[in-house]
Design a protein around this nucleic acid. Structure first.
Length: 421
RNA sequence: GGUGGGGUGUCGGAGUGGCCUAACGAGCUGGUCUUGAAAACCAGUAUCCCGGCAACGGGAUCGCGAGUUCGAAUCUCGCCCCCACCGCCA
């Protein structure tokens, strides 16, 4: 959510930003409603002022009661008009995307993204490398057939070493971030709609990508960003406690409604996965924002470097950004079967966009209340990252080596064909 | 899921239709006193919105929403949450 004052002062900027994010917003209607709201507020305030004056003398005179009755009706009318306008305005404001920072490239689609950095050496194989689906089947570590039999489209079982490696990978990232001072969380995946509105996942038609539990007001979160960003909603934090660095573990659920034909094979795009997520709540300060963004980026890259997976860092263009974001880096990891990098992490500055929706504030040293800035970046999204490990670490004999740093956690250093198969 | 109790400011806690402009207490901030500190005393101490350069003035908020009333923290209805006990349960 943008500050209405900001929209008043920068109407054209906001219009352009929406256009660059491939969004349609009616700023003129917003400004018009804002004006209507203002004048209705003034009238109703004046009326209340008079009412308060009258009812402060008591017992009231007969003519005051009469006047009071009339005012009551007037006020009722004004208030219901005001409420209607406010709701209309609020609904429209919820649809205004955040304005990207200046350094964000303007563009419609992925072709305008900017590659900022590459790390690692793309592996060359002296044999025909297999994709993770084939590897998974041959080594009996991924079962997609029974996955879809039991769970449905995009369902999967991780099995044997893959199941263990999966936990090891998540735990490796978790403890690494805890050592860096992040507060560990196991976050709820069942969330109320306000949290989804707050994070900016609702409403833009994004509702169709979120599982609803048909039960009161319960949804399955697609990322721990949602519960963790909402964690302090409605609170006023203290400036000296910021920034708060949180690392959350949670299952993640996504309907992938708009991606029916996309990435249909294997573990790349699934409805159910697990994630270690970095979430930071900081103060309203753009300079700090850029610093924290880089810090979260460095954390993610460090993980990939530990595991020795080649990756590249992308600066995402306006058309590839989500509505709440000021600036976004994607980190893409090399996946031999795609012969390309595939997104494994996504790192965003949200500014005060989410904080406004969540009423998440902090008290400055001067005693003023300000909206916080929020950030999030993936640490590990599993099983997507397993694809990269399996495919990059495969050996000529069809086995898969385990990255050194994970061996203490898995208890094995190679995944080999089971003798019974 | 059932029954009962409850939700008031930073905290404790009073308040059952109109001086509630929310008592009282605690905390916190500043001041007086003091060599310093404590105590005592004095003053201040919520949020959001509107108008104003500001001082300030006005409005709203007693879990949330609707209603009754000239007037609601207080009465009515709905909802949410918390606590206790019972039931079920990994």
């Amino acid at each position: 959510m943008l500050d209405i004052q900001y929209i008043r002062d920068h109407a054209q900027t906001v219009k352009d930003a929406a256009k660059h994010k491939n969004r349609d917003v009616d700023i003129d209607t917003i400004l018009d409603l804002d004006e209507q709201k203002h004048s209705l507020m003034l009238s109703s305030q004046k009326l209340r002022e008079e009412r308060n004056k009258i009812s402060s003398t008591h017992p009231p005179a007969n003519e005051d009661i009469k006047r009071g009755k009339i005012m009551k009706e007037e006020l009722k009318k004004l208030e219901s008009d005001l409420k209607k306008i406010e709701k209309e305005l609020h609904d429209l404001l919820l649809h205004v995307p955040n304005v990207p920072l200046d350094e964000v490239p303007i563009g419609k689609d992925a072709s305008a993204n900017k590659e900022l950095k590459k790390w690692g050496t793309i592996p060359t194989f002296d044999f025909e490398p297999k994709d993770h689906i084939t590897l998974g089947k041959q080594l009996d570590i991924i079962d997609l057939e029974r996955g879809s039999k039991i769970s449905g489209f995009r369902g999967y079982f991780l099995k044997n070493e893959a199941a263990v490696l999966h936990m090891a990978l998540l735990f490796y990232a978790y403890t690494k971030l805890i050592k860096k001072g992040f507060t560990p969380f196991v976050a709820p995946t069942i969330v109320k709609s306000f949290a989804l509105f707050g994070s900016g996942h609702f409403p833009w038609g994004g509702e169709q990508d979120v599982y609803s539990l048909n039960d009161d007001d319960s949804y399955l979160a697609g990322t721990a960003e949602i519960p963790l960003t909402a964690y302090h909603s409605g609170e006023v934090l203290q400036e000296h406690d910021l920034p708060k660095r949180y690392v959350g573990f949670s299952p993640c659920y996504r309907r992938e409604a708009g991606a029916y034909g996309k990435d249909t094979k294997g573990l790349y795009r699934v409805h159910e996965f697990w994630k270690i997520e970095q979430v930071v709540i900081g103060k309203n300060d753009l300079e700090e924002a850029r610093r924290i963004h880089e810090e979260l980026q460095a954390n993610a890259e460090e993980l990939l470097q530990d595991i020795k997976l080649p990756y590249r860092q992308m600066l995402m263009c306006t058309g590839e950004m989500g509505e709440p974001q000021l600036k976004k880096y994607d980190t893409e990891t090399w996946m031999p079967s795609r012969n390309a990098y595939g997104e494994t992490m996504s790192n965003s500055i949200m500014g005060d966009f989410q904080a406004r929706r969540l009423n998440l504030r902090y008290k400055t040293k001067e005693g003023k209340n300000e909206y916080c800035y929020t950030y999030n970046n993936t640490a590990v999204a599993s099983p997507r990252l397993l694809i990269a490990i399996f495919e990059n670490y495969q050996q000529k004999d069809g086995s898969i080596q385990i990255p050194d740093v994970l061996v203490p956690l898995t208890g094995f250093n190679i995944i080999q064909k089971k003798s019974s198969l």
